Simulated scan of single mutants.
Amino acid sequence: MKTALVVGASGGMGYALVNELVSRNIHVKAFARNKEKLVALFQHHKNVEIISGDAFNEQEMMKASNGVDVIFHAISFPYQDWAKQHNRCLDMVIKIAEKQGAKIALVDNIYAYGRQSTNRITEETRKEPQTKKGKIRLAMENKLKESNITSLIVHLPDLYGPNAENTILYETLKKVAQGKKANFVGNMQVKREFLYTVDGAKAMVELALRDDTYNQNWNVPAVHTITGEELVKILRDITGYKKGIRTVSKGMIRLIGIFSPSMKEVVEMLYLTEKPVILSGEKYEKEIGTLPGTSYRVGLEETIKWMKKRVLK
Rank of each mutant, 00 (worst) to 15 (best):
K191Y: 02
T247G: 04
G53A: 12
I50S: 08
T197D: 01
I153L: 07
E265G: 03
H27G: 15
T290N: 11
E274V: 08
G186T: 00
K174I: 02
E165H: 07
Q85R: 11
R297I: 10
N87S: 04
E141V: 14
W306K: 05
V311G: 01
V68L: 13
L207Q: 14
I288M: 15
A30V: 14
V176Q: 03
V70D: 06
V48Q: 12
T303W: 09
T197I: 07
K242R: 12
Q189T: 02
T118C: 09
V311E: 06
K309H: 06
P129N: 06
A40C: 07
K135Q: 13
T197A: 05
K264Y: 03
N183P: 01
K127A: 08
A164E: 04
E285M: 15
P261H: 01
M62C: 09
R297D: 00
K143L: 15
N183I: 04
L231S: 03
S10Y: 04
V198N: 03
L5C: 05
Y214V: 15
V6R: 05
Y111D: 00
T197C: 13
V311F: 04
T294W: 08
A112D: 02
H86C: 15
P157W: 00
M140S: 14
I245G: 11
G289N: 10
T273Q: 13
M13L: 15
L90F: 07
E193G: 01
K95S: 07
N215E: 04
H86K: 15
R33G: 05
A32M: 12
N87V: 15
D158V: 08
K133V: 14
M92S: 03
R126V: 14
S117A: 14
L169E: 00
T294P: 13
K145C: 10
K103I: 04
T239V: 08
I258E: 01
I234M: 07
W306Y: 11
Q59Y: 03
T273K: 14
K143E: 09
I168S: 05
Y196A: 08
R254D: 04
V311M: 11
L231Y: 01
I26P: 15
Y241G: 07
K233D: 00
V190S: 04
Q80D: 03
V223H: 03
G244Q: 12
E60K: 14
S23T: 07
A55W: 06
M140K: 02
V267F: 10
N47W: 01
K132Y: 03
L5Q: 02
F259D: 00
T290C: 05
M140W: 02
V176A: 06
V68T: 08
L173F: 03
V18E: 10
V93A: 10
A203H: 06
G200M: 10
E229R: 01
K191Q: 01
R115Y: 08
L17Q: 02
V93K: 07
W218R: 13
V48D: 12
G257V: 09
T273N: 11
P276D: 02
K37I: 09
P276L: 11
G101E: 05
H224C: 08
G293P: 02
